[in-house]
Design a protein around this nucleic acid. Structure first.
Lengths: 168, 168
DNA sequence: CGGAATTATTTTAAGCTTCAAATATCCGCT
DNA sequence: AGCGGATATTTGAAGCTTAAAATAATTCCG
């Protein structure tokens, strides 16, 4: 049986928005990121039995041998404070992190990798870097450079659109 | 060069830091995506009281007036089946979706937007498109085009690196 | 000094997400 | 018909994530 012809509402749906290009770009960007992220998550899990959030947290700490506060981690990972509290709790429990109260500020907790945590992270990081290289294998060096530059521009463009960014 | 593909373990043993550019590119891409996604999530919540996953699901359904099965949704959104089951459950509960058993296959559930769901989605989608445009405002039309092309290439490169993709 | 505002963290409730196991149904084949 | 494998969905357990409220400690400033 034939479908009923398009009504006004359906036509409105067909009408391309004013910014269809940007929307398509965003969706493509999201698809790319999700595709790669999902594969990395699976490989981390299958190869090392670790979740992506834990890996990400350990990656932050690997760059700060003297440790960081939970707030620092929260800001760098762009996740909520409460989220970090739970992640840290589980990683301390498993012996990958140690946590102590900051010497100069009794509100703050400083966390750092244990020897175990560091050793495990180094092994995972090497595999991770290779996996990422594999995913981007199809791009030339120039294309990587251009993409890098355009994403930097995108980041600053998006940042400018954030509320409370009225000042240059 | 690398005529023979190395397996994960072998790659992990490659000289460390060999693919720093790709790694930096990936981290930048991730930062961009997270930045934009977090802002969109906040605005959807504050403006419409809807979560991003619900918006994404409704977006899929808006393009399929006759409905889709849960599996279709799961594949398109690149999330697990169980995830979709829960999301759909809550959206049916709130009156945005209707669900019925597929006529030709009693295993499958076909879901579609209710009138309420469609009306609410249209309003949200218009705002969403404008927000995205705002985030990418700092890019010229040419830059958008180049980025689009490079991301398409990235997607196909990443896809080629997926297991079970040995054939071209 | 003392109060107000800020900052660091935790807690709680709700929802999202995955994986793996369990059900139910369908399809192809003999 | 009926068996066996594939497909669609649900369920359950564990973990991730957020927002908002609560707690605790610091800093600012008059």
């Amino acid at each position: 049986m034939d479908a009923i012809p398009l009504d006004a509402e359906a036509k409105a749906l067909e009408a391309p928005g004013e910014h269809a290009d940007e929307l398509r770009l965003w969706l493509r960007m999201l698809t790319c990121t999700n595709l790669i992220e999902a594969e990395i998550r699976t490989r981390l899990r299958d190869t090392f039995g670790v979740t992506l959030p834990r890996f990400d947290l350990m990656a932050q700490l690997d760059r700060a041998p003297e440790g960081m506060t939970l707030s620092d981690v929260s800001r760098r990972m762009m996740v909520s404070n409460g989220n970090v509290t739970g992640l840290v709790e589980r990683l301390v429990e498993s012996g990958h992190l140690e946590r102590r109260t900051a010497a100069h500020d009794r509100r703050a907790q400083v966390i750092r990798l244990t020897d175990l945590g560091r050793a495990e992270f180094r092994a995972m990081a090497a595999a991770h870097e290779a996996w990422i290289a594999e995913m981007f294998e199809g791009l030339s060096r120039d294309e990587v450079d251009v993409l890098m530059r355009l994403l930097a521009k995108t980041k600053s463009s998006a940042h400018a659109a954030l509320p409370g960014e009225s000042r240059p």
